[in-house]
């Protein structure tokens, strides 16, 4: 299978080999029946999923759900207790084969406090065997002014940004981000997501974990939801939220008539309507309020969010 020149160019400076051998497959990560145990504790159980080229896949879960353990096996930092994980068709522990094509942002910074920001990026960049410039990646995360500052003098947010800079050094084909926006202010979070978007436009595949569900909802192509070591849900955000109703909330004056559709009173005059037809029911409610001259106070309508899926999942009994 040949690789069109335009495609190669679009994939960025270090996309060489993307159309070679195993890369004729579109599957970048293949996790099959992965188990990770620590003594008697089963951190990850029978986890299976694939990540396709160009996707942004978010692996989400509660604390202790097993997502970091799973991610560490994918990164090659941890060996699977059983099952197989292939990255670019190779074992993730095969560093020479995988790492030049894979950028990793760790959950903890892991930089030497005595090196400067630019020295840290230069060192890790060289060792990844990708080509890029330190200035480019530092400017990407707005750390150009801190290039000569020792890591020990950087703030927590700046260290996270430095971590991201090393992960995207050389525009790798695959970027693994472990809670990338934790500890970042809103401007830095936006800037980081802009950089992720740019990577995706360059053809990179992204795998991430995050506690910020709204970020996953907004940016992920597909989401895997882990709970107590198991992958309990997987799919696009619409697929995951489809099974749960959206909500309309409002409150009424004491003398107002009862609402036109079934609603659960939250308190004396506050109502919650759960619906799978948000637009139609909202229109019906607004028409009713208009006809009866009813004031819908504190009216809000919310589509189903990943938070709701999470909460529902938490109350479900574990599968046998």
């Amino acid at each position: 299978m040949s690789c069109p020149r335009d495609d190669v160019a679009a994939l960025g400076a270090n996309a060489g080999g993307l159309c070679d051998g195993d890369m004729t497959s579109t599957t970048i990560i293949d996790v099959d029946e992965l188990n990770v145990t620590y003594g008697d504790f089963h951190a990850v159980q029978d986890l299976s999923f694939q990540v396709e080229r160009g996707e942004l896949y978010a692996l989400l879960g509660t604390n202790g759900a097993g997502k970091t353990s799973a991610l560490e096996v994918i990164e090659g930092h941890r060996r699977a207790s059983s099952g197989t994980v292939r990255v670019f068709g190779a074992s993730p522990t095969n560093r020479r084969a995988v790492r030049p094509r894979m950028g990793i942002m760790l959950q903890d910074s892991g930089f030497s406090p005595d090196l400067t920001a630019s020295e840290s990026v230069r060192l890790i960049g060289r060792l990844t065997e990708r080509s890029d410039t330190v200035d480019r990646v530092l400017s990407l995360v707005d750390l150009t002014g801190k290039a000569d500052t020792r890591v020990s003098s950087l703030s927590g947010g700046e260290k996270r940004r430095l971590d991201f800079a090393t992960a995207v050094y050389g525009r790798p084909e695959l970027v693994v981000l472990d809670e990338p926006t934790t500890g970042l202010d809103i401007q830095s979070r936006d800037a980081l997501w802009d950089a992720v978007q740019q990577l995706r436009e360059d053809g990179s595949t992204i795998v991430l974990t995050t506690h910020y569900l709204e970020e996953a909802q907004q940016h992920a192509d597909r989401v895997g939801l882990m709970h107590r070591g198991l992958l309990r849900r997987q799919g696009t955000v619409p697929e995951l939220t489809r099974a749960l109703p959206a909500t309309i909330q409002f409150s009424l004056a004491p003398n107002a008539p009862a609402p036109p559709m079934h609603s659960a009173p939250v308190s004396d005059r506050s109502y919650l309507i759960e619906t799978f037809h948000l637009q139609a029911d909202l229109k019906q409610l607004l028409d009713w309020a208009d006809v009866h001259a009813v004031d819908l106070r504190e009216l809000s309508a919310a589509p189903t969010r990943l938070d709701d899926v999470f909460r529902a999942m938490d109350t479900e009994p574990a599968p046998a």
């Binding site: 930092h77 560093r95 790492r99 930089f111 890790i124 060792l127």
Partner: peptide, 10 residues
Amino acid sequence: LFLKRLRSTA
């Protein structure tokens, strides 16, 4: 975690 960082490379 500098060792882990180094092991994240090739």
